[in-house]
Lab assay of single mutants.
Amino acid sequence: MAMNGTITTWFKDKGFGFIKDENGDNRYFHVIKVANPDLIKKDAAVTFEPTTNNKGLSAYAVKVVPL
């Protein structure tokens, strides 16, 4: 089920960042999981599918909501 969130941290040079989800949890995401990576920036609103990996909470099918 899709969730909403906000990008809180973005490491462009490393290709990953973190999203604060609607429950207040931080989720890892990688640029290859983003549909529109050219719009990635700190504080951008996103929708995504929540999941977990071996390191904890993460996100896939991430879409940055255009302003």
Rank of each mutant, 00 (worst) to 15 (best):
N23S: 06
W10H: 02
E22A: 08
P66R: 10
V34A: 06
K63P: 00
N54Y: 11
T6N: 07
I7T: 00
K63V: 14
V62C: 03
K33Q: 15
M3K: 06
A2K: 14
K20L: 14
F29Q: 00
V65T: 09
F48A: 00
Y28V: 05
E22W: 07
D38Y: 10
K33D: 15
H30I: 08
L67F: 13
I19G: 00
L57I: 05
A35M: 15
K42H: 08
A45G: 07
T8E: 08
T51H: 14
K14C: 09
G56M: 10
V31P: 03
R27A: 02
D43I: 03
E49F: 15
T6E: 05
T47Q: 09
I32F: 14
V64R: 01
T47V: 12
F11C: 09
G5L: 03
K33R: 15
K20Y: 09
K63F: 11
G5S: 02
T9Q: 14
N54H: 13
G15R: 07
K55I: 10
V31R: 14
F29Y: 03
V65A: 08
G24F: 04
I40W: 04
F18G: 01
K20F: 10
A61G: 11
Y60F: 12
N26W: 12
T47I: 12
M1E: 10
F18V: 06
D38S: 11
D13L: 11
N36G: 03
H30W: 07
D43C: 15
G15L: 07
G5Y: 02
N54S: 14
F11E: 04
H30T: 12
M1N: 13
T51G: 11
N53D: 09
D13F: 10
K41A: 12
K41C: 11
A44T: 05
I19D: 00
G24N: 07
L67G: 12
N4V: 11
D38G: 11
D13I: 10
G24L: 04
G17F: 02
V46R: 01
A61R: 11
N54V: 12
N26C: 14
E49A: 13
E22G: 06
D25L: 08
P66F: 12
P50K: 04
V46Q: 01
V64G: 02
G24S: 05
M3Y: 06
N4D: 06
D13A: 11
P66N: 11
A35L: 15
Y28N: 04
K55M: 12
R27F: 06
H30K: 06
P37Y: 05
D13N: 12
T52M: 11
K41H: 11
P66Y: 10
S58C: 11
V65R: 08
N23L: 09
G24W: 03
A45E: 08
I40R: 01
K14Y: 09
G17W: 02
D38C: 13
S58A: 14
N36V: 04
I19N: 00
K63G: 03
V34F: 05
K55N: 10
F16H: 04
S58E: 10
N23F: 10
K63S: 08
W10G: 00
F18Y: 10
N26G: 05
H30L: 08
F11K: 05
M1G: 14
A59P: 01
A45K: 14
Y28R: 03
V34H: 03
P37M: 05
E22L: 07
L67I: 12
A59T: 07
N4Q: 12
P37Q: 05
Y28P: 01
P66G: 12
M3I: 07
L57W: 03
V62K: 00
F16D: 02
Y28D: 00
G24C: 08
K33A: 15
V46M: 02
D43K: 09
G15N: 07
N54M: 11
D13M: 11
I19H: 00
I19W: 02
L39W: 10
V46Y: 02
A2V: 14
T47N: 07
G15Q: 08
K41Y: 08
H30S: 13
P37I: 06
A35Q: 14
S58K: 05
K63C: 11
D38L: 10
H30A: 08
F18I: 09
K41F: 08
V46A: 02
Y28T: 03
G15W: 05
K14M: 09
A59F: 03
V34M: 05
H30N: 13
F16Y: 14
A2E: 11
T9F: 14
K42V: 15
T8R: 10
A45L: 13
L39D: 10
F11H: 07
N53P: 04
H30M: 07
F29I: 03
S58L: 08
H30V: 08
F18C: 07
A2D: 07
G17D: 00
A59H: 02
K41W: 07
F16L: 03
V31S: 07
V31I: 13
K20H: 11
K12F: 07
R27L: 03
V31G: 05
F48Q: 00
V34D: 04
N4S: 13
G56C: 09
V64Q: 00
G56Y: 08
D13T: 11
V64P: 03
F16P: 00
Y28I: 07
V64N: 01
P50E: 03
G5K: 01
D43E: 08
K12G: 09
D38A: 12
L67E: 13
P37C: 05
P37E: 04
F18T: 06
V62M: 03
K41G: 06
K42E: 08
A44F: 05
K55G: 09
T8P: 02
K20I: 10
N23D: 06
Y60A: 14
H30G: 06
W10C: 03
D25E: 10
F16K: 02
K20M: 11
S58G: 11
D43G: 15
K41N: 07
A35S: 12
F18H: 03
V34Q: 03
G15I: 02
